[in-house]
Design a protein around this nucleic acid. Sequence first.
DNA 1: AACACAAACGCAACATGGTTGCGTAAAAAA
DNA 2: TTTTTTACGCAACCATGTTGCGTTTGTGTT
Lengths: 137, 137
Amino acid sequence: MNKAEEILAKYKLKKTNFRLELIKLFQSSKSSFTADEINDKIKSTNDKVTIYRALSAFEKKCLIHRVPDKSNLIRYALCQKECSKIHHKHNHAHFICNVCAQTFCLDNIKLPQINDTSGFKINKTKLTLEGACPSCY
Amino acid sequence: MNKAEEILAKYKLKKTNFRLELIKLFQSSKSSFTADEINDKIKSTNDKVTIYRALSAFEKKCLIHRVPDKSNLIRYALCQKECSKIHHKHNHAHFICNVCAQTFCLDNIKLPQINDTSGFKINKTKLTLEGACPSCY
DNA sequence: AACACAAACGCAACATGGTTGCGTAAAAAA
DNA sequence: TTTTTTACGCAACCATGTTGCGTTTGTGTT
């Protein structure tokens, strides 16, 4: 877990107050954020465009990844160290809490190996669990 | 596979040209439809509100169910016979084709049994596969 | 067949989430 | 310090889906 400033430097992203705060926000939480939630938590910008563009930039640099969302919003979580600077490499499941509507990455669950025989070429497997998270259970 | 008219009668839905066509459309295909795709294929209405409300009504009667969509659109597929008139009961996987952006129900794949030990209470398991469907492979 | 009621339609207007264009500001590189 | 490039911030836009409401049309009943 590097310092926010080192991360921005490493990924050749300019160091601005908002982006520093954004990285710290992601690092501070085990769950994930939508643009709207970010807007509520960070004061150094009020412009949603700034938020969306920072999220896109971070995603492109493999710093954060999209996770499923209860209401089909775009939601991001921090990437693990397996992601390189240019390549996402995720094989974990996600958990959606139906109480607080948060999404969590579950690193301890391994994805099933599916071999479909009906003519579908499978490239990716996504496993999403729903229920109640530890805080809401 | 009943006639469209019988289905509408069974579910106490009024028989209109559009809803008859809509049922037939779902029955004609192994995949699934968004409101926009329905609007392209059915001529008996031009109003998206009519489409959205019919889809909601069909979903409430457990005639169709929501399936995942590549672009986070609301997408529906026909229910199987296990769904009662008032209760959805699905435990199949879904396949998203990254070429044609269609979603298919995979009835031959059984969902994995997940026992999470980290304090998450799991109520539902969703398995979504991605790749190329038979027509696009 | 006529009536009455509820369900469905169709139009307008709205809500939400996300995107694009463009001029300006401000880091970082030279 | 100058130049270059990235990020910001505002406005305007777009796409998907929803709500309200008056009108129409099935359908079940008299």
